[in-house]
C-alpha cells in the first residue's frame, strides 16, 4: 500500500512536468549520485577500504534544479513543529517562483500530522503546517489568490504504519496543483 501511494505521487509529479512543458527530469541510473550536497558537488567518504574522492564543479543548470525541486511536493516537519526545515527552503522557493511566473496557476496546501495525540488538536497542527508553507510562498512572490489551504490532521497518513519513520513521513505539507 505504501508503495502504491508513492507510485501515485510520482505519477502525479510526472504529470505536472508534462503539463508545464518541462524536459524529462528523471535521472538515469548512472547519473543518480549517491552522495550529493546541496550545490550539487560530490564529496568522498573517508573510511577503511574507501578511497578519498575529489570534488568537481556544479554541472546542473538552474532550470534543471527548478524542475527537480518542483517535482518535490512534500515538505516534512519535525515533531510538534511548523518550522520550515532548511533542506526544504529551496523546494518552497522553486514553487514560489513557479506560482509567481504563472499567475493562472493555483496550489492547494494540505497540512498533515502523525497519528499521535488528539485528532482535533492535530487538525490545528496540520493547518499550522499548511500556513507555514503558505506564508513562505507569499513572501517569495506567490499571490494570496493562488493558494488555498486545508488541514487533514492525522486523517490521511502517507505511510500506514506506527513507528518513528512513518510518523516522520506523515508530518508534512503537500503542495497539490489541481489538474
Amino acid at each position: 500500500m505504501m508503495h502504491t501511494m508513492r507510485n501515485l505521487i510520482i505519477l502525479a509529479g510526472a504529470g505536472l512536468l508534462v503539463a508545464c512543458g518541462g524536459q524529462d527530469a528523471v535521472p538515469t541510473a548512472d547519473e543518480a549520485p549517491d552522495v550529493v550536497d546541496r550545490d550539487g558537488s560530490r564529496t568522498g567518504v573517508g573510511r577503511d577500504g574507501v578511497q578519498e574522492g575529489e570534488e568537481f564543479g556544479d554541472d546542473t543548470d538552474l532550470s534543471d534544479v527548478d524542475e527537480d525541486l518542483l517535482d518535490e511536493r512534500i515538505i516534512h516537519f519535525d515533531f510538534d513543529s511548523d518550522a520550515i526545515r532548511a533542506e526544504f527552503e529551496p523546494v518552497i522557493a522553486a514553487h514560489a517562483r513557479y506560482l509567481a511566473d504563472n499567475p493562472d496557476a493555483s496550489a492547494r496546501l494540505e497540512g498533515h500530522t502523525d497519528e499521535r495525540g488528539s485528532r482535533e488538536y492535530n487538525i490545528g497542527l496540520g493547518e499550522r503546517r499548511a500556513q507555514a508553507v503558505r506564508r513562505s510562498l507569499l513572501l517569495q512572490g506567490a499571490s494570496a489568490g493562488q493558494i488555498s489551504t486545508v488541514s487533514y490532521g492525522e486523517e490521511r497518513p502517507q505511510v500506514f504504519e506506527s513507528n518513528e519513520s512513518a510518523w516522520a513521513e506523515n508530518r508534512r505539507t503537500e503542495i497539490v496543483y489541481p489538474q
Binding site: 482535533e120 487538525i123 490545528g124 499550522r128
Partner: peptide, 25 residues
C-alpha cells in the same frame, strides 16, 4: 473555508460550540 471542527452541544441543547479557523489558519 478552512477548519470546521470539534462540535459540542451545550447541556440545554440550544447551542453548538465549534472550532473555526480564520483566513490565516
Amino acid at each position: 473555508a478552512g477548519v470546521n471542527g470539534a462540535p459540542a452541544f451545550s447541556p440545554d441543547g440550544r447551542s453548538l460550540a465549534m472550532t473555526l479557523s480564520d483566513p490565516d489558519g
